[in-house]
């Protein structure tokens, strides 16, 4: 059963973009923010496909093409660790190890309380403060173990 409230919200998003098919990526980005779980459910893909009159497979193709979309529920905060070269030479591997240790999960996993998901990202344009990570929309740089523990505490407190 599709949650009617979500369906309503999806239609509102589609209306905001004037039902233009060209806005599919924008619609998906907004829909992904509808719940705390940072993902797009298959049921919702159906609604989007119908409302925009685009074949389901096409919507699904777009959804799986872009790395910012997820079809599986994720944590409330997505911790994205940059793995591009400028961060790499500033020892981003160590940052990965610290996050894994502090959160008790491996790359790609979500904490049991569904608060954090750990994943990789390509360069986020913060190479001047590498090694860098992005949590939600915020960017943190020049990371050290102390700083990482501090940041996690901050989010846990929220």
């Amino acid at each position: 059963m599709v949650n009617q409230e979500i369906k309503q919200k999806i239609i509102e998003i589609i209306e905001k973009y004037k039902r233009e098919k060209e806005k599919l990526v924008m619609v998906l980005l907004d829909v992904q923010k509808l719940t705390e779980f940072n993902y797009i459910d298959r049921e919702w893909v159906n609604i989007i496909a119908e409302e925009l009159d685009i074949p389901y497979t096409k919507v699904y193709d777009v959804l799986t093409f872009y790395s910012m979309f997820s079809t599986k529920p994720r944590g409330k905060y997505i911790i994205e660790i940059c793995k591009s070269a400028p961060c790499h030479v500033n020892k981003s591997k160590e940052v990965v190890a610290i996050f894994e240790e502090v959160l008790g999960i491996k790359m790609g996993e979500t904490t049991e309380d569904k608060i954090f998901t750990l994943q990789y990202t390509s360069c986020i344009g913060a190479c001047d403060i590498s090694p860098a990570v992005k949590i939600g929309e915020k960017v943190y740089g020049n990371l050290t173990k102390e700083k990482i523990i501090e940041i996690i505490k901050e989010y846990r407190g929220v």
């Binding site: 591009s84 070269a85 400028p86 390509s122 360069c123 344009g125 913060a126 190479c127 001047d128």
Partner: peptide, 11 residues
């Protein structure tokens, strides 16, 4: 789109 790793000037 500024996707080239190590590029952050358009920003």
């Amino acid at each position: 789109d500024e996707g080239e790793p190590g590029t952050f000037k358009d920003k």
